[in-house]
Every structure is written in C-alpha cells, then in structure tokens.
Design a protein around this nucleic acid. Structure first.
Lengths: 316, 316
DNA sequence: CAATCTTCATAACATCAGGTTATATTCTTT
DNA sequence: AAAGAATATAACCTGATGTTATGAAGATTG
C-alpha cells in the first residue's frame, strides 16, 4: 500500500502543531482539507492515526512513526528547494574553464582561489590548451569558458569573445638579475644573456620571436624551453636567463618576488586576452557567475596595472 | 518555490533508470506523463534538468542534487509503508498490561520475555494492581489488558473476561524444607510451621485464610507479609516457613529449584485466572497479537500442568 | 449542569494536476 | 539516407484536493 509523501508531510505538521486547525495554518490549507486527508489515510491504513473522540487530537503510535517519515520528507523537500536556489543563483554547480597555461597559472589560478573562498559550493574544473584546442573543447561541450589571447579579427566561428586585458608583453628576469637594478638599458646590455622560451607551439613563443626582432635581436640563444610557468620562473631565479612574459603575469607574481620586468618596451602582440564561449549554449548559473567574477577581477587588474604604469619609465 | 516530493521521486527514478521510458515503467506511469512532469519542473525551476537534445537523457548537476533528495523521499515513503505494515500486523507498537503482582512476576513475565524475542519491535508496559484498580485502569484507558483472578459471575461491568487458567492453589515451601521430602503428610506435620502471607489486601491473602481453614487450620502464625513474589521466595528459601501460592506460579518456578509444593490438597479458590479488557475499545494490532500469544502460552501451560498432575499423588 | 467555546467532521461543489492514448519530432545508429 | 528508438506534444478525461458553509462533539467554566 503506497502512501503519498504529501500526506505524510501533512500528518507530521498536524502531529507537531497539535491539531488540525493549527496544522492547517502551518501547511497553508484549510482545516477541512486536512481533516479529509487524515480520514482517507486512516481508511487506507485501516488504523486510526489519532485517538477517537479526543478533542485536542492525540496521535497514535502509528501516527508518530509515520510523522517521523513525514518530517524526513519535509526536510528533503526543503533541501531540494535550497539546492535549486543555490544552483540557480550560481552559488552551486560546476564551471569548467580552459586556457593557455601561462595565463592560467600566472593570473587565473589566484582568481579561482578567491572565487572559491567566496563560493565554496562551486567546483571549478581547469584544463589547458591553445586556441585551436580550446575552440574544439568549447564546441564539443567539455568546457564552458576559455581564456586565451585572440586576435579580435580572428575569433573562431560560433564563439563569442570578450576582451578582458590588453595584450602587452615584457622582458622578464629574476629580481636578482644584474640588469634588474640597472637604471638605463641598451640593447647591448641584454645581448649577452640567453633566453627561456615558452613551449614551442604556444602563442607566447611567437611573441618572443616577434618582440625580440622588433628591438633588433634576431639571433638569440634559447637555454630552456617547454616548461610551464612554475618551471620557467624556477629556472629563471636560478640563472641569468631572460624571457618574455605577459605583463599581467609578471604583475600578479610581484608578491612572490620571484620575477621582475626590465624597462624595455617591446612590441605589443596583435592579440588581446579575453574570454571565449558559445553564445548558443546558454550558460549555467554557476558559469555566468564565474564569468562575471573573472571579468570584474580583470577590470580591477587592468586598473592596477595602468596606475602602476603611470609611475614607471619605459624606454624604446 | 516549493517542490512536490512526488516530482522529486519521479526525477530520481528517471535519473536512476536512465530514461523516460524506463523510468515510466519503474514508477508505473506512462512516458508522456513523466515527460510533462519534467517539463513542468524545468519551467518552474528555470533550469534544465536534462541536457538539451541528448537522446540517452543526460542529467544535469541540478538534476543530480534533486534526485538525491528524491531518493531520500522514496526511502522515507517505503519506511513509512513498512512501519504501517508492521503496526497493522501487530509486530510493532505497544501493549500495556497490568495484573496481580504474584501472577505477573511468577508467570506472565517469562511469557513476556519469550514474546519479546519473537517480536522485538513491540514494547510491553507492565503495571501491577488488584481487580478494582485494574478495572479503573482499563476504563480510564491506561491499560489494554489486565490479568487477574476473577469470579466469573463478578466480572466488572463493561469488561470482557476470558479465563485462561483454572484457579488452583497449593501449599508451597522451599525445596530444602523438612516436609518437602516426606512421602505422606498429615495436618499435624504442617501445624508447627509459621506462614508467609501475601500482601494484606491481595486476593491471595484471602485464599490463604480460606485454604487453611478448609483443612482445619484456623490459627496460624504469620512470620512475613507484604512482599512481592521475589521476596516471598527469598524468605522461604532461607526459612522453614510455608505459604500458599497458585500452582501455576510454583510450576513456572520449578526450573529455578527455589520453591516446591506440598502434596496436600487445599480448597480451590472460587476465582479463575483470566484476561480482562474493554470490548468497546477496539484493540490495537499489537495488543491483539499479544493477547493471542498469552492465551496460547496459557493453553500450553494448562496442558503441561494437567499432564504433570496425572503423575502426582494428592491427598486430602 | 447548562452554557459556551473550540475543535473536528461532513456536505457540496469547483478546479486543475496529472493520468491516458495517439501522434509528431528528434536524435542515434546502421 | 533510412530505420529505429526515445522523447515531446496534443487533446482529452478523471479524481484528488482545494474551497466555503455548517453541523456535531468534546472541553471548559461560572
């Protein structure tokens, strides 16, 4: 004999509130409604749920057992409701993002950290890739948001793009590097040092070549290549090698005092860092919230960077 | 936004069975029914529960959260159903019985013990009293069944009475008593010993007087009075005192080797041990089952007693 | 103990959630 | 491209469950 969970909840409400009239108020229905519900339940069960002919309705043992379950059900219903509200407000769920390794490690990861302290119920899945793979993953649906430097006129078909930071690279080195304290730099100064190159296929590698050629360096020695940001920084601090990094990455690492930039202006890449997603797939609330968060963080970051830039001196 | 627990159960069924059609089979409804239920839920929640346009229906994270609660609800529903079935079959609940102390302690308590091993979910409440109090308690509704010696023509108004054992008393003493081994007894033999009397108001006390006078003893010394069965037996084993006890009590105590009966036939009381209850209050299943059990146990007991009686020799 | 107050039960009716069958659509597979 | 399987939609019907109005029965109290 199947029992309707709604009836069990009503039963619990009556038992807990001590009467039909009061119970009716609790569940927001009329007293006769509950009266009939109880009558039907009793008929179905073949046993009384309240003692016969007692006016302050006195629950039977059976009633108490069933009311226990009713309470469980009411509880579960509430939990479901809250889960739905959390989900819909983007405070629970999953956001899957992918991006170029250097940016992810150097900039995004700390933003994820602060996001997660604010919204611990949101789980963030992070993967790495360059533009073509990111596009693929977005299209397949494995990823909700990609973060990647893109030439605004070359946004892949079907994807929306929102720039979040102007592309700007700098020559980076360890803070302990001989050039780091030198007030004025010439090309001759940097010529002797070898270079750390990002992984061969990465856009940053192209940036490195272009940047150096833009300041007249065409022939350079690569002492280390292929690592992630952590490796690059690690190698850099233990050597006098130089590298090219997005300024935002250097900026975000400043608190670690593990990397600094040299005051030599090099060519901007023709790409902008931005978010990619498929407009046609409507984003889950958690994804929307995460995207908003990242955008806000980046606009903060841009502000900080431009302020610091006003106090710095750059040379061609 | 309130969510119907039925919907959550359906959701769980679909998520667990992996599809609408299969889920429909599980919950015993048609596929379009579930389809619409899901559609309404999604509309209500404002979020998809299954990924759009995927044919082996793939549950969303939200769906999974809600399905979790749905499973909880289904579980609670089942538990309620089982609770009801247990209750209705008398395998769960409460039976409140009351009775005269000597019988309760000497006979009923061990029956309760075996009943409880068979039906551990039934809780038994036991209280003590003599006929007038028992009647009162039955009428007030504090007690479901009373066990008491009653004169069949003096069953209290409004109560049903079912005899379960013929009243028969014996003279009891410790097994170590000098008279216990004596093959032939005369009144002169028992004259010297003092007596243990049941509590003054109890029916047994009257029995004692009547029984002794029936065998010609009118003047007897009472060395101990007022105790419960445990006290009586305890006092008896440490002394040479005699007492009058229902034979059923002596019979049930035989395994403890703490009491035995003397082969002297004394008058039967004009009462029969039986069950009392109010026919107009319809008994809860657990009470019915308990009553049946007690009745069966007593018919067994009567059988055993009559068998043993055939082998014993009694004298006037 | 009659009067009164509360609380529950019943009656009569209205509505819509949710069941059904039939059929169209859409995704997947071959 | 066609076949197959699963889901969505349409159209309809029923009964569970809501309502108000009112009667009946315990409980309470001067």
């Amino acid at each position: 004999m199947k029992i309707d969970p709604n009836h069990l909840m009503i039963l619990a409400a009556i038992a807990d509130s001590g009467g039909l009239s009061e119970g009716a108020r609790v569940v927001g229905k009329s007293q006769p409604s509950l009266s009939r519900t109880i009558a039907m339940l009793e008929a179905r069960l073949g046993s009384r749920l309240f003692e016969k002919g007692k006016k302050p309705l006195r629950p039977t043992e059976l009633c108490r057992s069933l009311a226990d379950q009713g309470r469980v059900i009411a509880q579960a219903g509430l939990a479901a409701q809250q889960a739905a509200e959390l989900y819909n407000s983007g405070k629970a769920g999953t956001a899957r993002l992918a991006g170029t390794p250097i940016f992810m490690d150097g900039v995004i990861s700390s933003m994820i950290a602060s996001f997660q302290t604010a919204h611990p119920e949101v789980s963030v899945h992070q993967t790495y890739g360059y533009l073509s793979e990111l596009t693929e993953q977005l299209n397949v649906g494995n990823v909700d948001i990609a973060i990647c430097p893109v030439r605004p006129d070359r946004v892949p078909e079907g994807l929306s793009f929102k720039p979040i930071l102007q592309g700007r690279n700098v020559i980076a080195c360890a803070p302990s590097h001989p050039l780091a304290r030198k007030p004025a730099l010439t090309l001759a100064d940097i010529a002797p040092y070898s270079w750390i190159a990002p992984p061969a296929g990465s856009p940053l590698y192209e940036d490195l070549r272009n940047a150096l050629s833009s300041i007249g360096i065409t022939d350079f020695r690569v002492s280390f290549t292929g690592g992630s940001l952590a490796s690059i920084i690690s190698v850099m601090s233990g050597s006098e090698a130089l590298t090219v990094l997005p300024y935002s990455v250097v900026f975000m690492q400043q608190h670690t005092r593990s990397v600094t930039s040299l005051p030599i202006r090099i060519d901007h890449p023709d790409r902008e860092l931005g978010l990619l997603w498929r407009e046609d797939r409507q984003a889950r609330p958690a994804v929307k919230r995460f995207r908003r968060y990242i955008e806000d963080e980046f606009s903060d970051l841009a502000l900080q960077i431009s302020e610091k830039g006003r106090n710095a001196v750059w040379r061609a």
